[in-house]
Computed example of a mutant assay.
Amino acid sequence: MKFKLKAILALSLLPQIVLVKWLSNYPLVIEKYYSQGIYSYISGFFRFTLGRIPFSVGDILYASLLFLGLRYLILKRKCIWNNKLNFLVNIGLVIAVAYFTFNLSWGLNYHRVPIAKALKIEENKSRKDLLVFVNTLINHTNNIQEKIAGDTTKIITTPYSTQEIFDKTLEGYKSIEKIHPFLKYENPSIKKSIFSSTLSYMGYGGYLNPFTNEAQVNALIPPFRLSVISGHEIGHQIGYSAENETNLIGYLVTLHNDDIYFKYAAQAYALSYCLSDIKRNDEELFYKLLPKLNKGVLKNYEELTNFWKKYENVTEPVFKTIFNTFLKANNQKDGIESYSKVVLLLVSYHQKYPL
């Protein structure tokens, strides 16, 4: 490719950014013509073609690109040094093409109409309503834990393989579709990430590959939490990018599963987010609520805490900072904190649809 053409394509990044920023002011347009239009065909195509492949094509794609990139830097280092401008233009070209592909294949969903509109609810910031909901959740979570274990002190061990959890998650989507048709999910493409260990060290439960539309799940995570994460990543596939929204979707899909272990996982998941929210704002109240939980429930929380502690390392904060910046750059002003904003949706949702 000629230098002039590469330079033009590299510089196209700037008008692309401006265009996306301008489009973000028109969520109804994005909703109608992209999220429910172009994106539905693109995602459907990739899920239909790649969903049948048992391994993660996206993981292999990323690994191959990383390998080729490093190989190029090593073998061409002298050439790069002697042609710095050409190298910078090549980098700009790659970024511009990746940015265009990202937004076309998935990224514009960050600017669609919020899920609260589809559910006809509004975020509820009432601390009083949150406390009422938390006490309800504590009762439900305790009851189902004791029902499964027959003992309030026993930890719940989900008796399913990763693939069985994936299959049951799909059943959950069939159930939730009857309540909320816009959450319909077809042509499944959910897979174990080849890099589950890497994701664990980075502190991630999974991710959606925006270029292949494969839902990647960290298969090392305890099954107790894996069910909700699977529902969360599929939530990204059906076009919801905001983390608080896919947290809600993952919860609802798991809650509306006929399987009792899934129901327990969903309620314990929602409860953990609500308790964390209370702890941030009122530690005294948090420590008053904590003794109300069955010891078996607390043991499940401890299991998750111990899992993440095992993978703690000095690089994790770096990856979290990068992801935080990425989210803020894509219309999620709260960054990583947006995950916890699911509490506002949970309280409002269950005022409309009581547990």
Rank of each mutant, 00 (worst) to 15 (best):
R280G: 15
A96H: 00
T162C: 10
L183Q: 08
D334K: 08
P15C: 01
K168L: 14
C79S: 14
K117S: 15
W22V: 05
N124P: 07
I190L: 10
N281W: 06
K263Y: 11
K125W: 13
L199D: 09
V113G: 12
I30V: 02
D334S: 10
K120I: 12
I156D: 14
H256A: 09
V29N: 10
V347E: 10
Y240Q: 09
F195Q: 09
S276P: 07
G239F: 01
L293P: 00
G296W: 00
K263M: 14
E233S: 05
F319G: 05
L345F: 05
F55L: 10
S197C: 10
F45K: 11
N103R: 05
D277K: 04
Q36H: 13
K78N: 15
R47D: 14
A329C: 11
S338N: 09
F3R: 00
I95F: 03
Q332S: 00
G231H: 04
E31Y: 03
L208M: 06
F166N: 09
G51N: 11
E337I: 07
L19D: 13
L252W: 04
T212L: 08
P188N: 11
T157G: 09
V94K: 02
H140C: 13
L252G: 06
V347S: 09
N86D: 15
V134H: 06
K2Y: 13
L23H: 01
H180V: 15
K352Q: 12
P354N: 03
S276E: 12
N143M: 10
S35D: 08
K2N: 15
Y110A: 09
V297K: 00
S64W: 08
E243I: 04
N330F: 01
Y261G: 05
L88T: 00
T254L: 08
A268T: 07
N109S: 07
P223K: 02
F323K: 08
S348Y: 02
P159Y: 02
L66N: 12
P223H: 06
T212Q: 08
F3A: 01
I80T: 00
C274A: 11
P222N: 04
L293W: 00
A329G: 14
G107N: 03
L304E: 15
H140N: 15
N300I: 01
G37H: 04
H350E: 13
Y311V: 02
S126N: 11
K192P: 10
I194R: 09
Y99N: 01
S241L: 10
V97Q: 07
V113K: 09
L65G: 11
K184A: 15
Q237D: 13
P210C: 02
Y264H: 07
T198Q: 12
L183K: 05
I115A: 11
Y110H: 12
I336N: 14
K184D: 14
M1W: 03
M1Q: 03
Y349N: 09
F166D: 14
V132A: 14
L93C: 02
V342S: 06
L137R: 04
Y72T: 06
